[in-house]
Design a protein around this nucleic acid. Structure first.
Lengths: 210, 210
DNA sequence: GCCCGAAGTGAGATGCTCTTACATATGTAA
DNA sequence: TTACATATGTAAGAGCATCTCACTTCGGGC
């Protein structure tokens, strides 16, 4: 850290005294720590260490520890919504397959990033005043809602659509959590998520059994 | 802490130098802190302060911070299972009402103790080697499993019973989490948990729609 | 009555959060 | 080019938490 200022860059894109991309790299470091050591297994200091900066640097980009977490969650919700939309777009509008694909994207996200997934839904305590996160949550729900509406041929604000969309969400959400928690004695040989979600979608959006 | 040894007892059952019931009181203090300030809003030091002992005292009863959390979770799971069993016992064996009552107990627990509830299902990271917790989880699932089996008139290890019990659990679990997270745009005017769970139980344990 | 183990104390090593004062880089304008 | 404003970094440190260690105090069994 004396003669050659370009040498010390720790395998990152650090140009010199200024980092250039610290904010994004901190988020990525925290995301990785959360996946590796659980939702609380990260520290601002460790993230800074990984980015190759002093432990005070992160506070130039984030107010405090919770704000970094919120940024990680926000970025995670963006990816979750994008995945759900990709699932929906891969099938004809209004098809049961589209609804099931949204659910599958949800479950796959939970399995791929259990730490972030848990964080997304466990960050409520102390983060009530985060309107952007709440809005992103609504956006995710909106994907389900409009797919269900298209499937039933009803407007998204129809009470019956809302009821069934909530049931779908609730089902998929529970299955996702149980899958990553492994607290369930899963039916013999595990579960075929695709077939499972297709069956659930059919049952909930089909004839009025509820 | 000098002249009158009996004076300093901080509204607890402290007899003198020895506390008498520190372990239980620490668990209770942590439980309260978790409910008030979220799953991570507690510290061993604060719990010790509340119990009126030095910050080193807790380590005579628990190896480390995670072990206290595990004790809180363990105690919480005991109460959850007890509540589920009470729900089941309040209705005829094999009735749909019994199954719905188990689900209602589950949701009610989540609403009453969201912090502990979240902890119970979020403690997997780093606590894999806690066979007692896993076993208590199995016990809870067992309540659902045998109620479903009785309802269907089949043995609890029947694959169909397992599939439907898992569906029930998944549904109730998702609903519980969504309720305490309020991440859902709940159907107008909220949800009548009792009716909702009864409908779900009927749909899942009824004729083979899945 | 004595001794031993269980349960508590105070001090301290280490690490994390976040603040403050200061240093360095970058862009814009004179 | 120089000069300044702003953004982004550093070093040092206050304050709190976890956990350890050596020591003290209590209660029960012999």
């Amino acid at each position: 850290m004396s003669d050659d200022p370009a040498r010390a860059r720790p395998a990152t894109s650090r140009a010199g005294y200024h980092h250039g991309d610290l904010r994004a790299q901190l988020i990525e470091a925290v995301r990785d720590l959360v996946e590796t050591h659980g939702p609380d297994g990260f520290s601002v200091a460790e993230a800074a260490r990984r980015a190759g900066v002093s432990s005070a640097a992160p506070y130039k980009h984030f107010r405090d520890r919770p704000e970094i977490l919120r940024a990680v969650v926000s970025e995670g919700m963006d990816r979750l919504r994008a995945a759900m939309e990709r699932g929906a777009a891969a099938h004809p509008a209004g098809s049961l397959e589209g609804v099931a694909a949204i659910g599958l994207a949800y479950v796959d996200f939970a399995k791929a990033e259990p730490g972030v997934f848990r964080l997304v839904f466990g960050l409520t305590e102390g983060h009530e005043n985060a309107p952007d996160l709440r809005e992103k949550g609504e956006d995710c729900y909106g994907v389900v809602l409009s797919a269900a509406a298209a499937c039933l041929g009803l407007p998204p604000d129809d009470p019956d659509v809302e009821r069934r969309a909530y049931m779908l969400w609730s089902f998929v959400h529970g299955h996702s959590f149980l899958t990553i928690d492994m607290k369930h004695a899963a039916p013999e040989g595990g579960i075929d998520d695709g077939a499972y979600l297709m069956a659930v979608s059919r049952a909930i959006l089909g004839p009025k059994t509820f």
